[in-house]
């Protein structure tokens, strides 16, 4: 019984935790594409900064993943 609730908790942790970063990465990419459309010469720069910013955003999802992993396996 306790194990079942832990499974639900792990699922909720990663599921809810992925919502925010998902939206964030989507917004980031859309803005980057917009910038790319306006200024195609700056493509390399935009791509680099986009990847960096996505890495920061994604870190939040990774925190949720770690919490889920800890609940499930530890």
């Amino acid at each position: 019984m306790e194990g079942d609730i832990m499974n639900v908790g792990a699922g909720l942790a990663i599921g809810l935790g992925a919502i925010g970063p998902g939206i964030g990465i989507g917004m980031l990419a859309s803005k980057a594409m917009e910038a790319l459309g306006r200024n195609p010469e700056a493509g390399a720069q935009i791509q680099q900064n986009m990847i960096l910013a996505i890495a920061f955003t994604e870190a939040i999802a990774i925190y949720a993943l770690v919490v889920a992993i800890i609940i499930k396996f530890v």
Binding site: A55, I62, Y63, L65, I69
Partner: peptide, 13 residues
């Protein structure tokens, strides 16, 4: 911490 868990989380997942 975010360095550690970003890399670990991505590869482990």
């Amino acid at each position: 911490i975010s360095f550690t868990f970003r890399l670990f989380g991505n590869i482990f997942a």
